[in-house]
Amino acid sequence: MEIVVCIKPVPDAETRLRANPAGTALDGEGVKWALAGYDESAVEQALLLKEANPGSRVRAVSFGPAPRTEEVLRAALALGADGATFLEHPAEVVPDPLLAARAVAAHLGRATWDLVLVGKQAGDDEAGLFGGALAELVDAPSFGGVMALTYDASARRFTFRRSVEGGAEAAEVPGRAVLALQQAWNDPRTAKLPNILKSRRATIDKVAWATTAGALGPLGTPTTQSVGFRLPAPRSGAKMIDYRTPEEAAEKLVRLLQEEAKVFP
């Protein structure tokens, strides 16, 4: 089985964020990028499927700016992906989820694949558009919030669970599909040191922007556009309690909660 897992670099949870001078987007300068959240779950699921289905291969694919995109592809290789494809995205082309879906769909049109896994949404903009758009473009069924995916080789069927309001839904889908993974249900593995070293030397297949652009034809107007980017205002209203002992702190806290915040009588 040929499994394609689509990933995207997002700012590391510990990196400091700030807006660009125009206040329209994140300033990428000095940001540490990572493979994170839903995408990590997607890579883990791809590897679990590969391990359960000998002979399967996992290929990580990403469309985005260099060098951060190559970095997350290397992270996927270090985790155990067999190959990586970097679809170039020039800085002057406005980032857009639909464009990303079109670029990857154009690439998939030239590749063999049985299953595409994506994160349910990106860890940064949380747009959640890519998986559905890609499924539409490659004419494959699509589901979101997928967990515990298995493959029945004899019936050529994928079965999985989805968390839905108040419970879980069991579903199955025959043949090719685009499935968007729920976050943090599968305890993503840590890359092993020798694999990290190997991934640094591995070759990443690069698809030039000219190739992608040629397949896409006219780009049209981006479907989404970022008009403003602001960080949450620092929170105010915090009250520091002066205390000498934990008992005193608790007593003062309870009084404040009762009398000022009126959380309880």
Binding site: R74, A78, T190, A191, L193, I196, L197, S199, R200
Partner: peptide, 16 residues
């Protein structure tokens, strides 16, 4: 870059 990734990996292991 190789050294940075070793360092990050070790840091992640140490913290988790």
């Amino acid at each position: 870059e190789e050294q940075t990734s070793l360092q990050e990996m070790a840091r992640k292991f140490a913290r988790s």
